[in-house]
Each structure stands twice: as C-alpha cells, then as structure tokens.
Design a protein around this nucleic acid. Sequence first.
DNA 1: CGCTTATTCAACCATCTGGTTGACGATCCG
DNA 2: CGGATCGTCAACCAGATGGTTGAATAAGCG
Lengths: 107, 107
Amino acid sequence: MDPTLDRTFAALADPTRRAILSLLLEDDMAVTDVAEPFEMSLAAVSKHLMILSRAGLISQEKRGRVKWCKLEPDAMRAASTWMKGFGQFKELDFDAFERFLEEEDLS
Amino acid sequence: MDPTLDRTFAALADPTRRAILSLLLEDDMAVTDVAEPFEMSLAAVSKHLMILSRAGLISQEKRGRVKWCKLEPDAMRAASTWMKGFGQFKELDFDAFERFLEEEDLS
DNA sequence: CGCTTATTCAACCATCTGGTTGACGATCCG
DNA sequence: CGGATCGTCAACCAGATGGTTGAATAAGCG
C-alpha cells in the first residue's frame, strides 16, 4: 500500500532509467550530460529524471542554469528491504513475515 | 537491457501484485482463492497472475479444473541481485560495477 | 447428460507511459 | 543588450495498464 514503493519499482522497470542510475553512480551530473549517451530527446530524458526524482531514487538541485542530478540510495534501500524481507521468511515463519510487513509498512 | 528485469520490476510496482506474492508466500493457492481477499473481479486477479507469471515471479500449473499458483524466487532474486550489486559498488569501484553489470547482463 | 465450479477470453473504457516537436523562461557570457 | 545554452512545458501520439462485464471453455459431480 506504500505509494513510494509503487513509484520506486515502477521507476526501476525502465532500462533507460536503470542506465541513468548507473551513470549517476559514477558521479553527480547535469541533465544535459545525463542525456548525452541516449538516443532520445533531452525532453524525454528530463521526464525520466522527473520520474526517478518522484520515486525518491535521485534528487535534483539547480545551481545557476545547471540542474545537478544526484543518486539517493534510501528509496532503493526501501525496495531492497521489501525484497529481502520477502525472501528471508520463505518457508520459515509466515507470522513473522506478517509482523515484518506491518512494522515496515511496506505491504 | 534485460527484458525480464523490466517485467520483474514492473510486476512489483503494483500493490495488488505484491499482496498476491505475500499470499503465495504462505502456500500455493488456486486462482479463486488468491482472488478471494481482493475487492475486484476474478478476471482482474487472473490478469495480475498472468503478469506475475510472465515476470517469472510465479508459476502456474493446471491440475484438473484448478490452476495452482506457486511462488518462484529466481526472478525476485535476479532483481535483488541487480539492486545489491548497485549499492555494493557505490563510492567504491565504478569499473568493478561496470564489470558486474556486463557479467550479470543486468544493465 | 446437465448443473456447477474454475478460469480465461473478448470487448470496452479511462488513465498512464514513453516518446516526439516546438515554444518558452532562465541564466550565463561577450 | 543580445545571443547561446540549459532545461521544462504543452500539445500531441501510439501503445500499455488496470479495471469492468458478459460470454466461452473446461472439468468435476450427481
């Protein structure tokens, strides 16, 4: 029911966006530089960045003309936590998993 | 570029489908039983199960009239591996991460 | 055989997605 | 100031998504 988790997984479902995240792993980048390796318009990349931003996977800060994009690990960590918790309890203790979901509010 | 990873993350982006996976964690279930807790038509749940199935997150086996749905951990593991690898190399060794991506073919 | 249960199919609908192009606002620079 | 660069906005498009309903297929049961 967590809308953030929805947005995070949805954002990760696109290969262009995963590639953008890989780029940002190297360093913070301006929007134009993020767009450079992709064979699509700047506007399209800008939209992808907006989706990543609303999903909490990146943050954007405008300094002068240039908008800098920066990886934000927390959102991905939340998604990873959901998956980890999921596997952790398989064939083990379903009640414990239920409690885990309630605690984390990540059902 | 891995279409399976695309489908896996896309499948996980829907709260109904994540809830279905939680149900299946408890036990294998028939389609009708999976649908029971949800306030939507059986056809809608059937579609969700199809999406989970094509994403590799579950398998479905028909025995008699009844189609049994079973959790398949491999797909989620692949997604989890992508995320884990992602975090693992942050601010550490970008070249190693690049190699990881190539090896895993999970860019 | 005929009824009931299990599940999908088909058509339809509203909304979202990923892309385009062209215009626009903002900022830096000579 | 005037021009170039950075980035978004707006309108548009084709196709996917998540839901509905009603009919169809398939299998078990009396």
